[in-house]
Design a binder for these strands. Structure first.
Lengths: 147, 147
DNA sequence: AAAAAGTATGCAATCGATTTGCAAATTTAG
DNA sequence: CTAAATTTGCAAATCGATTGCATACTTTTT
């Protein structure tokens, strides 16, 4: 319930629609990558993604993710582990500060969750500090690991 | 006012006291590094620190920072730039979630500020999620760069 | 339909931050 | 003072992110 749009496999038509809506040409490679992203329950890294394919070039995956990110198909999450994680944006997301949500990284199973329902609380910055972006990551144990 | 204890040069006695209080042996190298850290107005990276010395071994600095961090003399900040920043902890800091504050990274001058007065707002996590640590970084323009 | 132009992909290689191994130097303990 | 433990310095490995360039694929134009 509190996750990003994730773990929801889509058919080719749906995938193509998403790419078209964001003006990204639906190549075979991109459809494959988008399909894989849609199947994820949690945000994944480039290396995680690579492992889920039999044989793909990591740089191609890297560039595909970059393209997706630039076109707001996915957002990247810096969970502090040293490797960026990626997750699908919700429809119409513009990745503005208001669209941002909290992320949770489980220190045991190493998964990173998008807590979509949890928006980042506003902070009144000191005078003359101008806010453009923000990142809030909580760490600890997830529901599956807290027993 | 809202910064970490920073930009406050200390004498050797004070520096030694800090190290002793945290059970870190006050070697010459460590006193030099701690002294340099106390002079900083903002959090700095390993490379920043290296540049401020005429000639030091980066790995030694790295290990010194690690030791300081383990003993809670400094805290590390992941501001999302790819290089960790470090800043002195306040006296008695235990780096618990309650001690944590917000950090601000200026996208123009690249400095990272400890907003000590700004504690991270509490988030009620979903059931069974256990919070251990958190990180909140705001990005934008600092007071000197917002004109 | 063929040529030209633009875009995407694959592979090699680089880059920067971090981390480890090991020997030499320094400090502490007996 | 000597032995043991700790710290320091230098070389090298690791790892994620990124670039260069040649090849393959698409789209456009003639």
């Amino acid at each position: 319930m509190y996750l990003c749009i994730a773990g929801i496999p889509m058919n080719e038509k749906q995938l193509t629609t998403i790419l078209n809506a964001r003006s990204v040409k639906p190549t075979a490679m991109r459809l494959l990558v988008l399909d894989m992203l849609a199947r994820q329950e949690t945000a994944i890294s480039l290396s995680d993604l690579e492992e889920q394919f039999d044989k793909v070039d990591k740089v191609t995956l890297y560039r595909t993710l970059k393209t997706f990110e630039q076109h707001k198909i996915i957002h990247s999450i810096d969970d502090g582990t040293g490797s960026a994680k990626y997750a699908l944006c919700s429809e119409g997301c513009e990745c503005n500060p208001g669209d941002l949500h909290v992320h949770f990284h489980c220190q045991l199973c190493k998964r990173t969750f998008c807590l979509t329902e949890y928006t980042i609380p506003a902070i009144n910055l000191p005078h003359k500090f101008i806010l453009k972006e923000m990142n809030m990551v909580l760490k600890g144990l997830c529901e599956d690991c807290s027993n």
